[in-house]
Design a protein around this nucleic acid. Sequence first.
DNA 1: AATAGTTGTCTAATACATTAGACAAATTGA
DNA 2: TCAATTTGTCTAATGTATTAGACAACTATT
Lengths: 241, 241
Amino acid sequence: MTVLKDVSGGVALWRRIVDAIRLDIIGGKLAEGDRLPTEAALAERFSANRHTVRRALAVLADEGVVGAEQGRGTFVRNARRLSYPIGKRTRFREGLKGQASSLASVNISNRLENATATVAKALDIRNTSKVVRLEGMSLADGVAISRSTTWLPYRRFADFAERITRLGSTTETFASYGIEDYARASTRISARHADVEETQLLGLAPGAILLVSEAVDVDADGVPISYALSRFPAERMELVV
Amino acid sequence: MTVLKDVSGGVALWRRIVDAIRLDIIGGKLAEGDRLPTEAALAERFSANRHTVRRALAVLADEGVVGAEQGRGTFVRNARRLSYPIGKRTRFREGLKGQASSLASVNISNRLENATATVAKALDIRNTSKVVRLEGMSLADGVAISRSTTWLPYRRFADFAERITRLGSTTETFASYGIEDYARASTRISARHADVEETQLLGLAPGAILLVSEAVDVDADGVPISYALSRFPAERMELVV
DNA sequence: AATAGTTGTCTAATACATTAGACAAATTGA
DNA sequence: TCAATTTGTCTAATGTATTAGACAACTATT
C-alpha cells in the first residue's frame, strides 16, 4: 500500500490565502476601500512567510480585487460577484438582467451523438438514442461566467443548433418548436476544480473552482426537453435558489 | 506592477486529476467495479506523467474510491455520494433520510454575540443586535458531511441552544417556540477551498472543496428566524434543488 | 510456455513553493 | 525633519511537484 506522507493537499498555500482573502471581501468582512491587514499581519494569520502572502496579494491585485500602495497599505478595490437565480422558471438572460450591462452567449460547437447512460437517464430516452449536443459559453461585461454543455433529444430537436444560432435565445428557440412554456424539473449542484479546457476558455487560473449545475428542463407535459451541464467559476458567480 | 510569470494556479496537477477522476466516478461515467483507463491512458488524457497519475490514484485508493491490482488494472470500489435536497421546505433530517443508516448532529459550541452587517441583513434586524450563534457539524454513517454556523435573533430565541440540545432536532425546537411551520426564504450557493479548521473537523485533505450554502428560514408570517452558513465537502455531497 | 499488457519500484533531473533575512522606497504623523 | 510603518526588491536555501526512463512483478491470453 502506498503511504501518503504529505498532507499539503495539493493546493499551494498562496492559493489558499488568495481564496481566504477573496472570501473575506466577497463575504463583506472587508468592504470596498477598506485597508487590508498589513502583509506582516496576514503572514502571521496564515502562518506563512511574508513573501507567500505577497504572492497571494499579487494574484488578487492582478484580478483587480485589491491594490497595493507603497507606504500606505493594500486596499480593497472591487468586491462584487454575480448571482444566478435558480428556480422553477429559470431563464438565463432574465436571471442576470440588471447585474451586468452586456450579456453574450457564444456557441462553440454542435454535434450529433449517441446518448450516454447519464444523458439518456436525464432525458428519459433509450440508451444510445441520438441526441443533439451543444457546447457554449457566456460572458457578462466581457468576462466569462459560464461554460455549458446541453443535450436535447434528436427526434424532437433535430435542427436546434441552427435555430438557436438564428434566434439567439433558448426561450425563443423552444417557442419555435411550439413549446411556449417550460420549467426546471431538477437541478443538481456540485463543485470541483476546473480542467485545462475550462481554465483556458473561462480565462481562469488552473485550479480555479467551478460550481457545476446539472439541470433538466421539461415542457408543459413534464417531458424532458433538455439536459444542461453548466460550469460557473465560483470566484465570479454564486447560485441563488 | 507585479507581473505573474507563472500560471500553474497553485493547485497541483495530481490534485486536479484526483478531482476529475472522482467526478467521473460520482457522475456515473464509471460505475462500481468498472476498470479505469490504464495509467498510461490517463497520463495522456491529463497531459501528465504516469507518476503524477499514480500519485492521484494513490490518493483515491487511500480514500477507498478505487483499488489497483497489479497486472490487471485499477478498479472502481466505492461510487456513492449523498444528495441534499434544497427547496421551500428544506429539513435536514428528512432530506437525507434513506441515504444513510445513521445520521448524527454534533453541537460544537454556542455563544451570544452582536450581529455583523451580514447577519443583521439576513435576519432583518438592526446591526449589532444580539444574536445566538451555534456551531455544529453533522455525520452520516460516521462520516462528516457538513459543518454549519447558525445565527438566530436573541430576542426571540434566547435559550435556543439549550432547547436544541434537549430536543435534538431543529424542527422540534422551533415547534417549542410555537413555530409549527417554517420555510426556506432563500439559499445562496457558492464554493471555495476548505480552511484549516474545516479540513480537520470534516476529516478532509487540505485543499478540499466545500459547497457553501447560506440559507435564511422564515416563519409562517415571513419573519426571518434563522440564518445558517453550511459547508458541505463537495466530494461527499451534492445539493439538489 | 511465451507474449503482450498492466501495475509497482527505483534513480535522477528540473521547475515550483516556501521560508529567511536584509535593505530600499514611499507614506504618515509626531 | 525625524521616526515609525508599510510596501517593493533582491539573494539564498530547502522541500515539493513533475517529468523522464528503465526494469521488475503480476495477469490474462494465445
